[in-house]
């Protein structure tokens, strides 16, 4: 088992290492300036450098990402359930949701700042806005894509609507919701960083903007590494959650 895992991961690890080596060789071989492209060694140095309070920035951005994810997940599931629960609700909500989704969310970011001021909350909202739509759609689809025969089974026993939801529709929707949440996990990261780009005094996005103006490129790369680690952690958590909550769906989606 462990041996098999090792061989499964071997190609990716070799590829990753190879790229690092190539990168280092390119930088030293071509004599690139550090502010154009810092070497992996320089990035590694910046990652653990004490000239910057990494922990503080990571906590700020991590909170924004997690908050964005939770708002998108809870709001998306609630809206999706509402549209599936009642046809009238679906008809009222869906066009509006589609409209909101077609808005370029990044363009709304300055407005959020105006309304909610500086801080983590507007950044959370931007991330949530980018990430909630797939959750709404997949929740609604998962709740309604059910074999008509299955629903007849519920009708025969005059089962109340909530019971059909609890016993049949909601478990049926798990795999759909969980695969949407994987998309949302990535969107939450984008939203949080975009928010920090627009205006902020802390966070990894803020680090990237300020290091760019001071030409401290290794620091920007360091922030990138931390961002991708945060993103991977959230994505991994969703993947584990889906394996626990919907083990029957394994191999069913991607």
């Amino acid at each position: 088992m462990i041996k098999r895992k090792f061989f499964e991961w071997l190609p990716a690890s070799l590829m990753f290492l190879g790229l690092l080596v190539l990168w280092q060789l390119a930088v030293s071989g071509l004599g690139l300036r550090e502010y154009i492209l810092p070497s992996p060694a320089a990035v590694a140095h910046a990652l653990f450098s004490s000239e910057i309070n990494w922990t503080g920035h990571i906590i700020v951005t991590g909170t924004a990402i997690l908050g964005a994810f939770l708002i998108a997940a809870i709001g998306g599931i609630a809206l999706g359930t509402l549209t599936a629960w009642s046809t009238v609700m679906g008809r009222a909500l869906m066009p509006f949701l589609v409209f909101v989704n077609t808005l370029p969310k990044v363009a709304v970011a300055p407005l959020f700042l105006l309304w909610f001021g500086y801080g983590i909350f507007p950044n959370m909202l931007i991330g949530a806005l980018i990430g909630f739509f797939p959750v709404v759609i997949n929740t609604a689809v998962g709740l309604t894509q059910i074999d008509e025969d299955m629903l007849d089974l519920g009708r025969v026993f005059n089962a109340p609507k909530w019971k059909v939801f609890a016993k049949i529709r909601i478990p049926n929707a798990y795999p759909y919701i969980l695969s949407a949440l994987k998309v949302t996990a990535t969107a939450a990261v984008v939203g949080a960083i975009v928010g920090e780009f627009v205006a902020s005094q802390s966070g990894l996005g803020y680090v990237i903007i300020t290091s760019q103006s001071s030409l401290n490129t290794p620091l920007a790369f360091g922030a990138l590494v931390w961002i991708s680690i945060l993103g991977l952690a959230l994505y991994g958590a969703v993947a584990v959650l889906s394996r626990v909550l919907a083990p029957w769906a394994e191999g069913q989606e991607n």
Binding site: D147, D149, M150, D152, L153, V156, K167, I168, P171, N172, Y174, A246, W248
Partner: peptide, 13 residues
């Protein structure tokens, strides 16, 4: 009534 359909329609979870 008890119903049986062409597909077994079992809940896979």
């Amino acid at each position: 009534v008890g119903m049986v359909f062409q597909a077994a329609v079992l809940l896979k979870w």
